[in-house]
Design a protein around this nucleic acid. Structure first.
Lengths: 121, 121
DNA sequence: TCCATATTTCGTCATATGACGAAATATACT
DNA sequence: AGTATATTTCGTCATATGACGAAATATGGA
C-alpha cells in the first residue's frame, strides 16, 4: 500500500505529471526541465525529488548536471504500471504535446548556455 | 489531461483507495462503507463524491439507500486502466485484506440494523 | 585555493485537502 | 401530514501541499 500511495500521490499534481512525461524516451537535465515548465529551480527540484522517492524516475549525475529518466530496469510492477497508465492516457495530450514542442527548442540550446540564461532572469 | 488528473487525485488519498477497493466485485451501501472505515458519514460521502466525479465509481439509489460500485460498462480507458492499476497492486495488500474481513462482518448485518447502530454512536 | 554555477535544502507563505458536526435534503413508514 | 432515517451539503478547523527566494552543498575550471 505504501509504494502504491507514494506513486499515486506523485501523480496527483499536474506539473509533476508534465515533468514525468517530458522524460518519455530520453533523459533530461534539471535545467532543461526548469526551462520547460518555467518554475523556480527549487520548485522543480522538489517535484523531481517526489517523483524519485516514488521510484517513478531515477537520476544520474554527470559533472555539475543531474539527469533524470524513467527507470531503466524497472523491477516494481507498481511503478511500471503507473508509467504505462500515464503514457497510454497522455501520449496524445495537448499540454504534453506543447511541452514536447517547448522541450524540442530547449534541447537545441546546450546546457551551459541554458543555465547562464537562467542565472540572469 | 483533466480526466487523468481527476483520477490521479482521487487515488491520492489512502482512505479513498480503501473505499474503492471495497467495491471490488460487488456494490456496497454508503452506511456499510462508513462502518468499514469508521469515519463520519459526511467524510465518507465526500470521498465517494470525489471518486464518482473522477468516474472511478458510479452510484445507484434504492429507496433510502445509495449503493456504490465500480463502473459497469466502462467506456473510459483512463478509468479502466486506473482501476486495473489499483486492483493489480492492491489485491493482496494487508490493509485491503483487513478491510475485506471487516466488510464481511458488516455485510452480515442488514442495512437497517447497521444504520440504527450508527445513529446511537 | 578560489570562483562560477548547478542543484538541493530550508524557511515562509497562500491555498488545498481531509476531518468533523450541524443543518439541509430525500425517501419510507405511520 | 408528520416522523424516522439515509445521505449530502455547508461551515469550520488543523494539517498538507506547492510556490518562492535565500542559503547551503557539490562540482569543474581559473
Amino acid at each position: 500500500m505504501i509504494a502504491f500511495m507514494e506513486a499515486a500521490k506523485a501523480l496527483a499534481d499536474e506539473t509533476r505529471v508534465r515533468l514525468l512525461m517530458a522524460l518519455e524516451g530520453r533523459e533530461v537535465c534539471v535545467c532543461q526541465l526548469i526551462e520547460m515548465v518555467g518554475l523556480a529551480p527549487s520548485t522543480v527540484s522538489k517535484h523531481m525529488s517526489i517523483l524519485r522517492h516514488a521510484r517513478l524516475v531515477e537520476s544520474r549525475k554527470e559533472g555539475r548536471w543531474i539527469f533524470y529518466r524513467h527507470p531503466q530496469n524497472c523491477d516494481s510492477p507498481i511503478v511500471a504500471q503507473a508509467l504505462d497508465w500515464a503514457r497510454r492516457c497522455l501520449a496524445d495530450d495537448t499540454k504534453v504535446r506543447q511541452d514536447r514542442e517547448r522541450m524540442a527548442q530547449v534541447l537545441e540550446m546546450d546546457p551551459e548556455a541554458l543555465c547562464r540564461k537562467q542565472c540572469c532572469r
